[in-house]
Amino acid sequence: MNAVAVAHTPNPDHPDNPDWDSGTAELGHLLRPGQLDLSHKVILYLEDITVSFDGFRALDKLSLTIDAGELRCIIGPNGAGKTTMMDVITGKTRPDEGTVFFGQTIDLTRLGEPEIAHIGIGRKFQKPTIFENHTVFENLELAMKTDKRVWRSLCALLDPAAGDRIAETLQLIRLAAHADRLAGLLSHGQKQWLEIGMLLMQEPKLLLLDEPVAGMTDEETERTGELFLSLAGKHSLVVVEHDMAFVKQLGGKVSVLHEGSLLAEGSLEEVQADQRVIEVYLGR
């Protein structure tokens, strides 16, 4: 089943990918989005990011790099700044200092949220946010990668290929039976899945997932893990989680955030053995 998930996904990193330029002129707002330059095999650079809220530093000179195709887990105690970091990457929060680069060339601090979404960064919120008054099907339709300008939406018709893709995703997130129900009526776990489905419809190159398995059963968690593993390689993923079993299942590199900066990095075993990390988690 996981194979299905990626089967329809054209290789987004390929420069010849015709989809790539479709949103170029989001009504003239995106200045030369350029192409994603992965020549150094790094998809995301965070350098010395500082964000403060009324004097409180949520991020303090945080530096982090994510390789192309990597599956990275981010852990850290509550309030460490994980969500804030995602806010910075997706353009919701502007850093006071520091730079964020997507590939070699695209400076994310200059772009707005829709542009960032457009160049291929998708995000799942900590609290599932879906369109409660739309059906599950419509939620996926809205998220689908396509021209998202007003004029196009005014005369858009759903073509059969798009319908097929939505159907596939519905299968994948096991909501096919609920396609025509209002999303607001779904259970918490189903909403989480729907949001992941919406993310997949966006076909992002980089997926930011904030606590994606909160509220899921063990079995569901495992299935999510499998899905993520199958996505890695073609997509890059950054997963924020508190569930260590899940992090272990994913098996990738782990970064530990604490008080807004990077505390440790390495495999799960390595960071779990790190004295400072133990201190942070156990408290002093």
């Binding site: 949220e113 979404a117 946010t129 369109f131 739309h134 809205l142 998220a143 300008r149 007003v150 939406s153």
Partner: peptide, 30 residues
């Protein structure tokens, strides 16, 4: 309008504007 995709985006903006932005729509123009 309201039965077109435009209408669906519009109601989506009404219900969860930030989500709409993060999937790549510009609420401003809508």
């Amino acid at each position: 309008l309201v039965t077109s995709k435009f209408g669906r985006v519009l109601t989506a903006i009404r219900d969860a504007e930030s989500r709409v932005m993060f999937i790549g729509y510009h609420p401003l123009w809508y």
